[in-house]
Design a binder for these strands. Structure first.
Lengths: 209, 209
DNA sequence: CGCATTATGTTTACAGTGATAACATGTCCG
DNA sequence: CGGACATGTTATCACTGTAAACATAATGCG
């Protein structure tokens, strides 16, 4: 593009042809678009446009759209984990802290609907458990620690895993139902959730009632 | 889906135009495609191709793609409700029956991944609660009845609603996590869920621990 | 320093999509 | 019978992801 009227270069050393750090810029723009939530589907071309580069420039840095998306997922997951960690700290840890991480999860989801949905749908298999971003205190580890401290000791490792699964499913389900418009998004509901305690226990096979 | 395949409406209007009853055929093809799960995104053109009509013929029966999707959602929701009702009956009602409806929900989701995801994402606002398909015993009503019988009487209407929400969120979250590959799809896990009982209760605002 | 190699960005092109408009045809009803 | 209307088709457009060929900047080696 020779017409440089609308140079969107944010980085100072944006000498014409070579954009300082296109890869990072693309990721930023992508995340930004997903957060704006405007377009249900972010397109490579839109991202490129945003950065001020030709549509196919993206392919010098990402093999395809899925690859870009995958990285954005990880970014989102990190952000989410941060929000949870912060909520935990703000609530002073303990059981209340744990509930707060759940609330943070839901709030993050409804605050970033497009991102969150794409995030979950494009997370690499086993994503949250993967080591891609386990460098820091990340949601899953936090969840694990919390569950361990909440589940009766005799439940064993299996019980811990089941507890993690159920807790996660709980907040995730609530988040998705809100995102999908099946349940009204209401801070009140989130608060109610936070101050509710759920317990689950195996019940031996027995006649109902 | 059987009501229109072989037994043509005895009512006159199904006189052969060009395709007999394109609208129904399109819906069938659409549902079929979503169930095959092959293509992540079913396209109007593909549906049309499947039925053997020109791409734009669809627009004589649906204003746009979203409209087609919406109807497919409702079909899926009905199917899901049927599966749940059947599971309930098979389990002999009661608490076990209720758990079975949860299992049926999850199993339907993992058995129809594409359909289920699109179903939830495109369900009209408040979809499951809408009267669009409340003609029969549908999931939500069943859920409500079950919750009412399981929640302590003093919880009141609000407690019932909250219970419904939490139960739904639980199975929905588990389903989505499996669909998204965050949790391995395993019949064992589903069974474990079915034989677990979850309880939730409000805890008054109190110092943690 | 000069030049070849490589990294990066551009242009061009293609197949596929949802959608609109103009057209063609079949069906029905007065 | 003949027009009115419902249904299906043929262009056509704007948009998408992606590949191939090309152009330019940065880099390294003689």
């Amino acid at each position: 593009m020779s017409d440089n009227a609308n140079s969107v270069n944010m980085t100072a050393p944006s000498r014409g042809y070579h954009h300082g750090d296109l890869r990072a810029a693309l990721l930023d723009a992508g995340l930004d678009l997903l957060k704006s939530g405007s377009a249900e589907t972010l397109s490579l071309r839109e991202v490129a446009r945003r950065v001020g580069v030709s549509p196919t420039a993206v392919y010098r840095h990402f093999p395809d759209k899925a690859a870009l998306l995958k990285e954005l997922c990880i970014r989102g997951a990190l952000e989410l984990a941060q929000a949870q960690a912060q909520a935990m700290k703000a609530a002073g840890g303990g059981r209340k802290g744990f509930a707060a991480t759940g609330g943070a999860y839901i709030r993050y989801a409804v605050a970033n609907p497009v991102l969150f949905r794409i995030m979950m749908a494009n997370m690499p298999p086993g994503g949250f458990f993967s080591s891609d971003f386990s460098d820091d205190q990340v949601g899953i580890q936090m969840l694990r620690d919390n569950i361990i401290s909440l589940v009766p000791k005799e439940a064993g490792e299996e019980g811990v895993l089941f507890g993690m699964l159920m807790s996660w499913a709980q907040v995730h389900g609530l988040s998705m139902l809100m995102l999908d418009g099946q349940v009204p998004v209401s801070e009140e509901t989130i608060k109610a959730f936070e101050s509710s305690r759920l317990e689950f226990r195996f019940v031996p096979d027995q006649p109902s009632e």
